[in-house]
Design a protein around this nucleic acid. Structure first.
Lengths: 200, 200, 200, 200
DNA sequence: ACCTTCGGGACGACCCGTTAAT
DNA sequence: ATTAACGGGTCGTCCCGAAGGT
C-alpha cells in the first residue's frame, strides 16, 4: 500500500491497522508504530489521541463498510437469490480491500472499551439481520428451501468471515470469483447431482 | 467447570485457558490467573514454568485432539460421505468439549514462539490434509461433484471453525445436531429442490 | 572434596562456600545449593537458619584461621626474618587448604550485615597488625632495611592475598614452595646482584 | 565527582560504576542508580539498554585503559628497568584515576555474559603478556636476575592489583609516589643491604 | 529426623502509554 | 517532532516458612 500520499494521521492509522492485524492490539506498541514511520514514539501524540482511539477508529471503519454494504444488498429490488449473491460479493470485496482491517475487526474488538464495544456489537447485529432478512424472503418466495434461518445465516457468515484467515487479494482468485464459487456451494452443495451420476 | 478434583497444575491450566480465551494472551496477567485460584502471582511458579509454556501446552493439546480425530475419520473404512459426516461431528465435538480451548487454539497461536508455532502449523497442515483426502476420495468414487477440492475444504473448515465464535454447548443444539445440520447444508445447499417443490 | 562423611549441615556449608566463591553471594540461590545436594530448596531450612548466616559462618571461619596463624607467627621466639617466612607460609597454606573459603573471605564480606562486618573487620585489623609487628621488629634489630612499614605490609599482603585469584593447590607449585619463592622476592628483589653481573 | 556537565547517559554510567564498586553488581538495583539521579527506575531505559550492558561497558573501558598503557610501556625504546617503572606508574595511575572503575574491573567481570567475559579475558591476557615481555627483556640484557618470569609477573601484578583495595587518591601518597615505592620494593627487596649497614 | 509441597510476599529488571518542555 | 521522564504495570525470582508425609 502506498503510504506516500496519505496525511501523517492516515499513515499512522495504516501502520496501526497492519500491526494490530499481524501481532494483535496488546502485542503492538506505540513505539513500534512510530518506528515504521521513522519517528519517535512520543511524536505520534501530535496526531492522534491515544492507542485506544486508534483501535476504535479502525474497527469502526470496517464496521461501517459492512453495514452499508448489507443495507444496500438487502434493500435492492432484486430477487432474494440475487440479493444473496450481491451480499456475498460485497462482503468479500470489503475483506479483499483490506485484509488487515478485516482481521482487526473480527479479532480485536474484544479489546475495545465497553461503550465502544457496544456500538460495534450493535452494528454487527444490524449487519447480520440483513442476511437473515434475505434468507427469510427467499424462503417466503420459494427460492430457498425452508429451514432454520438463524443457523443458516451463521453457516453463511462462517464461510464469509473465515476468509480473512487465508484469502490474499493478490492470489489466483479475485474476490468476486471467490464469492461466486462460495455462492454455488451454498446454493447447491457438493453432493453429486442425479444427472451427473447418469453421465458416468 | 469443576476445578475441585484437579491437581493445582491442571487448575492453573484450566483458568489460563478460560482467561486466554476471553481476554487474549497478552491481556491476561499471571496475577489474574492466580487471583482466580486465590493464591499470589508468584506462587504460580511452583507449578508451572511460565506464561509462554502455558499457552503452548493449551494450544498443543487442542492441536493433538484435532489431528487424532482427523486421522481416525480419514482412516476409517466408511464411504467418503460418511467419513465427511464423521469428520464434521468430531470437529464440533472437540469444540463443544472445550470452547475456550478452541478459541485459544484458533486465535492465540500467533503469540507462540517461532519454534512452537512451527510445530502447531505442521499439525494444522496435517489435519487439513485429512479433509482434503476425504473430499478427493468422494469425487473419485462419484459421491461428490467434481470441483476445486482445495477451495471446498476451506469452505467446510470455515463453517466448522467459526462455530467457536458463537456455539455454546449448553444451548439448544447439541454438537452432533449442529454437525448434522451443517452436513446437510454442505451436501445439498439451500436452493429449493425441484422434487421438494413438487412435494408441497 | 569428599562430601560423603560430612553431616548434612556441613555438606550445605561446603556447597555454599563453593558456590559463593564461584558466583558470588547474591548470584547464588538457595535452590542451587539444594540442587547440588539433591534436595529441595525448602529442605535446607531444617539444617540452617538462613542464607546470611551461611555467609557469616564461612567468612568467620576463614577469618579465625588467619588470626590464629598470624598470632602464632608473630608470637614465636624466632628472628623476624624467620617469623616473616613462617607468616607467609601459613597464609598461603590457609589459602591452599581452601581456595573457595579464601575467595569468599576476601570478596564477599561486603555482603555481611553491619554487625557481622564489624567483627570481621576487627579480625582483619588484628591479623594485619601481626605482620606490621614482625616488620618493625626486623627493622629494629637490623635485619630489614628501614622504610614505611605500613606501606611495606600492604605490599606483602598484596602478594599473599592475590594468590587466591590464580593459585590452585593441584598445580605444579606447593603452597610452601610458593611462599618461599615470594619470600625471596620480598627480601631480595629482582634486580641483578653485583656478583651475578660479575659472573657473566 | 562532578556529575554536572556529563550527559545523562554518562551520569548513569558514573553512578553505576560507583554502586557496582561499593555493593557489587547483583546487590545494586536499577532503582538505586535511578534514585541517585533523582529519576524513576524506568526512566533509565530512555538512555541505556540494560543493566548487563552497563556492567560490560564499565569493565570494557577499564580493560581498554590497561591494554593501551601496557602496550605503550612495553613498546617504548627504554631499558627494561625503565619500562617496568613506567608500567607500574601507568597501572597505578589508571587505578587512581578511577578506583571504582578498577574495583568493578577486578571484581565484577564474573557477572558478564560468557561472550563478554571472553573478550575481557583476552584483553587481560594481552595486558599480562606485556609485563612478561618486559621481564624477559630485562633478564636477557642482564638488568634483572634470572628467575621464573611467570611467577614473578604474578608477584608484581599482585602488588599492583591489590591497591584498589585500600588506595585512595586523596590520601597522603600520589599514585606516582606509590608506584616508585613499589618499584623499589620489587627491585631491591626489603633485606638490609650490606653497604647500607656499613653506611650507618 | 529429614524432606517435600505449596505458598507468601517482597522485590528484581524492564516495558508501556503518555505528557511537558522545547 | 524530539527528548526525557513518569508512574504504573508485567513476568518472573528469591528467601523463607508451615503443614504434613515417611
Amino acid at each position: 500500500v502506498s503510504e506516500q500520499t496519505l496525511s501523517r494521521k492516515d499513515q499512522i492509522y495504516a501502520v496501526a491497522e497492519r500491526l494490530f492485524s499481524r501481532n494483535g492490539y496488546h502485542a503492538t506498541t506505540m513505539r513500534e508504530i512510530a518506528r515504521e514511520l521513522e519517528i519517535e514514539g512520543g511524536s505520534l501524540y501530535s496526531h492522534i489521541t491515544g492507542k485506544q482511539e486508534l483501535l476504535y477508529q479502525i474497527v469502526l471503519r470496517a464496521s461501517h463498510k459492512f453495514v452499508r454494504a448489507g443495507r444496500a444488498a438487502a434493500g435492492s429490488p432484486d430477487a432474494p437469490a440475487d440479493q444473496l449473491r450481491a451480499f456475498m460479493r460485497q462482503h468479500l470485496a470489503i475483506i479483499a480491500a483490506s485484509v488487515d482491517g478485516a482481521v482487526v475487526y473480527f479479532h480485536q474488538w474484544r479489546h475495545l472499551e465497553p461503550e465502544q464495544r457496544a456500538t460495534i456489537t450493535a452494528h454487527r447485529d444490524e449487519y447480520e439481520s440483513y442476511l437473515r432478512r434475505i434468507l427469510s424472503a427467499g424462503v417466503a418466495c420459494g427460492q430457498f428451501a425452508a429451514g432454520d434461518e438463524r443457523l443458516l445465516s451463521k453457516f453463511i457468515f462462517s464461510a464469509l468471515n473465515w476468509t480473512y484467515q487465508w484469502y490474499r487479494p493478490d492470489g489466483p482468485l479475485s474476490a468476486e470469483q471467490l464469492a461466486d464459487a462460495y455462492y454455488e456451494y451454498v446454493m447447491a452443495g457438493l453432493a453429486a447431482k442425479p444427472q451427473e451420476e447418469a453421465d458416468r
